[in-house]
Design a protein around this nucleic acid. Sequence first.
DNA 1: AGCTAAACGAGACGGTACGTCGGGTCTTGGC
DNA 2: GCCAAGACCCGACGTACCGTCTCGTTTAGCT
Lengths: 190, 190, 190, 190
Amino acid sequence: MPSKGRPRSEEARRAVLTAAAELLRAEGYEGLTIGGIAERAGVGRQTVYRWWSSKSAIVSEAVVAGVISLPLPPSPEPLPDGAVPGLGSWLASFGEAVTREDTASVVRALAAAAAEGGPESEEIYARYTGPVKARIAAIAVAGGFAEGDAAVLADAVQGALLVSALTRRPVDAAYLAALGRLGEPRAARG
Amino acid sequence: MPSKGRPRSEEARRAVLTAAAELLRAEGYEGLTIGGIAERAGVGRQTVYRWWSSKSAIVSEAVVAGVISLPLPPSPEPLPDGAVPGLGSWLASFGEAVTREDTASVVRALAAAAAEGGPESEEIYARYTGPVKARIAAIAVAGGFAEGDAAVLADAVQGALLVSALTRRPVDAAYLAALGRLGEPRAARG
Amino acid sequence: MPSKGRPRSEEARRAVLTAAAELLRAEGYEGLTIGGIAERAGVGRQTVYRWWSSKSAIVSEAVVAGVISLPLPPSPEPLPDGAVPGLGSWLASFGEAVTREDTASVVRALAAAAAEGGPESEEIYARYTGPVKARIAAIAVAGGFAEGDAAVLADAVQGALLVSALTRRPVDAAYLAALGRLGEPRAARG
Amino acid sequence: MPSKGRPRSEEARRAVLTAAAELLRAEGYEGLTIGGIAERAGVGRQTVYRWWSSKSAIVSEAVVAGVISLPLPPSPEPLPDGAVPGLGSWLASFGEAVTREDTASVVRALAAAAAEGGPESEEIYARYTGPVKARIAAIAVAGGFAEGDAAVLADAVQGALLVSALTRRPVDAAYLAALGRLGEPRAARG
DNA sequence: AGCTAAACGAGACGGTACGTCGGGTCTTGGC
DNA sequence: GCCAAGACCCGACGTACCGTCTCGTTTAGCT
């Protein structure tokens, strides 16, 4: 089906995602308006409505498209020689990235969008939150956690970073180290 | 110099908080409007603005006033004779309460409000999130955690419950148990 | 019913009517927008919608309020000593006034509004077209026309002026004189 | 240079005119949209814009093409042997036709289009209003009117019918008879 | 039989106006 | 001076059409 009619403008799509990213950084999620995005993108308002059903749909697509620099699960697992990287070292880079102020504002945006419910909630989970969680859980499993416990740990780690972003507390290396320690093996497990 | 003129109507105050609670449950935080609250409360819109500066101020006051049934840190510490209650048993009741669907919607509301920033963010933290965190941290300290680590653990526990609420996943006893285990002493600590 | 709440702002009302009159003259009926009227009036758009249901409602109220200078039926009948003034002399003033270009644009606006149908159509008739017709018919009756014939003559006279306005033809004294002659008594009537 | 390339589709032309006629009857001139016409005609929107410059161009072509049943000046002049037909008998058929409700809606449409000004105004005059007026004037001249007076009478007759259509009053035989009497010779003329 | 060029359907594009909704302020009269 | 009522200005919302602009697809007349 080679598609009839004028094809969708990739340029317009990028312009919208870019404009959304810039405005999000500049104004926060509130203060992000469809009209504002369209105007900055040099695009008709209708064009935005044609392709996206909500602000959060734009934001989450921008995240996935890499237009908004959110640290995605940095790589499946770069294990150097055979050793497992460990939650601590993974967090040292990911956690640092995710809590820089400019990133934190995006995190807050996603949280607000998720809170609203609707399709965006699931989209964000499917496209970002879920993969990150899977990544953390995989590391935990490699570190000896049972499947179920690993999933809970993943929630906890991601949740801690989310709470930090929502309460606007800076996150330092010590905090990340302590968070990483939650993934260490327990006495009972050896 | 207490009061010339008509005193503030306690009746109006309760009506506003109650109306906000009902609407929040019925419509979610989005869909919660000042006008809607005032109308349902049978109160002038100006009366709402006179006493509250934002939607979240109303909601958080309603939480503290007990009009919205959010499980506040269930009690300072009921320790029976001298034993520490443990994070697990505490979570068994609190966690269950906080993740029932009607409560979860309030949690999402607070998360959305926190994401917006502004005064609401701090108010919610001061009135609800902070106390809960302090409670968890106190339990962790009693369980042998260092101060800093306890704070991180508290974020993680609260964060895990928040993530569950935002992603609309049900939380069962096994989940809460696994979460509680994060607070157990480590091999390295003895 | 002494009315509760803030009373309607007469100032806003006048501003809207005035703005509409100015824009109508400047841009024509098309090119007249609610938003434009509100902006020029320094009034919220909602305020316009609160009190008027359409552009034509604004225009016809402006006509009746005298903000738009349309020659209303100039006076019932100023008969000096007992003689009837006659259609010709009446038209000499009224017809001249109603066909000046600035007035003609208003006439076209009313015609367009009437063509749309809806409540405005009737409003315009009740408030402007009808009275003018009644005036002309009264003169015709005084000149010896039967009731029914007078009404038809009134339609014809008003219609000729309307056609002139719609086709943008200038109307001169000779035209008005010829039009007035339609109201003269016939051979058959003596 | 007569045409290389695909020739204009006569089928598309008819489809557009027909669709416009149907929609005009169904929705009125307002509510008539280019997009709606194209869709109902099963034609691309661009095809409409390629051949017509405005809604009124479509409508007036449809009138001239006979797709819209407007009573055009019913015939140049059927005079049987040498007698003049008279305004009254001409109106009996034409006037009746032009004031049937389905026709009246078209008349209103043309009036609205004329009120808008621009090229449509002139096109309608050239293609419809003008010829009708010429017809009436010719009859009046045959009846003894001077040129100028005949033109005025034509305006008056056409105007009366227009006013009836705009004010949505039914027109009966008595009305038409009275209107025809305006074209009778005067006492002063013999 | 192939080539060329215009018209065709479809539908996305940048715009403008619409009418509605909610926000936060102001202004009444009554308590 | 608080209160219910309700009008005020403002600005975002999502929709509907506008007139223009590609697309890929016919469909003729001219090679």
